[in-house]
Design a protein around this nucleic acid. Structure first.
Lengths: 217, 217
DNA sequence: TAGATTGTTAATCGATTAACAATC
DNA sequence: TAGATTGTTAATCGATTAACAATC
């Protein structure tokens, strides 16, 4: 994995760090709901299955948030991480491919808690166009560029078959999308300035089955 | 991410390498279908969006497969990688949580091409139990241990809500599951010998939105 | 042969972790 | 104060990449 960096003030932080911060925020919210007011890096790290140093190191890219000898105020840290990740403002995204997986993501309720909202879904299949999924009408793929541009969407989620993925990604990029989450089992080659995250469920399971076969020896 | 290693003969190969090998195999199959007989690391790497050295290095953990000055025979390499990953034999898995995402995975046709097959699906929701999804009947979650053990399943996919994930994972592990793909937005703490891969769609998109906000400056 | 391309060693780069001073 | 825990520097570890000999 070529690790991509992101400029933060003068610092460059890897996307791995950002993902971890996002998961810290996720768990902090749970703690907050459970009425926990103060937490140490040690106990939170245990909850997250990482080391406490990694937690503190990750935070250190953005400033000191804790109190030595005490730990972290859950509310304060939650607020800081929310601000830092920009998770307080709603972020819309466009989705291409309203098949099984696409529909599941459209209806994925957890996204709401992350202030992430599906704004438009597209498909080229006549049978899917016009279909209403969770209140959202699937639009014709040929209108994608116009809609994405008009709505000013910056994030695209690709759930189309592998052979259509590259073209869809290019069209998204041309319409102003600068970050893509690709579920299609294929690599996408696109302008450097567009960030692509790949999730290939088949590859994930195949890697696990290699692990299983190894263990069988 | 703590990078997990897997023993291969005397060599230890990271799971990242295995995932890449899986994606190499995926693209080699496409080339094979397109009638390509020989390919160089350079052109394949370009297709994959990685460097040619990385491709050759990854292969080198398992032996020399190419011909110097020429490249790789597509059929031969496909066969070798298939054998190496054990991708020729069908690998079954169990799925917990037959909601939207779970159903999408049950019906995910690409898995077949990877010789990966859903063998049993479970849910604790009375409305879902007995439901037939793509020919598979959703079973009662309380029968999970027995069925998993009887069928000898080793891979589990978790699509239940976050708060149920930990318990489901533990029950899977107790029934003999040794590799888990977790889609629930929470960490799973489990026996060391069980490998857990996490895919948190919310975290993925939140990280992308951080990237988008950074670019806006 | 000359050109191309592999396989591998050594160098580099980045991420994780150990160690510890600072301080609540 | 003594104990706990943070924040950070330095050391370690691992992964990627550069360089190049081997050879088709």
């Amino acid at each position: 994995m070529t690790s991509r960096r992101v400029l933060t003030g003068s610092k460059q932080v890897s996307l791995e760090v950002i993902k971890r911060l996002s998961s810290y925020l996720r768990d902090l919210k749970t703690l907050e709901n459970n009425g926990v007011t103060v937490v140490s890096s040690g106990s939170l790290a245990e909850l997250l299955g990482i080391s406490s140093v990694q937690f503190r190191k990750d935070l250190s890219y953005f400033g000191p948030f804790g109190k030595k000898g005490v730990g972290y105020n859950v509310c304060t840290l939650t607020a800081k991480l929310t601000e830092l990740l920009g998770a307080g403002d709603c972020m819309g995204f466009a989705l291409a491919g309203a098949g099984k997986l696409g529909s599941a993501i459209i209806q994925y309720s957890s996204l709401q808690r992350f202030n992430i909202k599906i704004m438009a879904a597209f498909d080229s299949d006549r049978r899917k166009i016009g279909k209403k999924i969770d209140g959202l009408v699937v639009a014709d793929a040929k209108d994608m560029e116009t809609t994405v541009r008009t709505m000013g969407l910056k994030i695209g989620v690709i759930c189309v078959p592998a052979k259509a993925a590259q073209q869809v990604a290019e069209r998204m990029a041309s319409a102003g999308i600068i970050a893509v989450l690709n579920f299609a089992p294929t690599e996408i080659k696109i302008l450097k300035k567009v960030h692509v995250s790949n999730v290939d469920i088949c590859v994930e399971i195949e890697a696990l089955s290699y692990f299983v076969r190894q263990s069988a020896t």
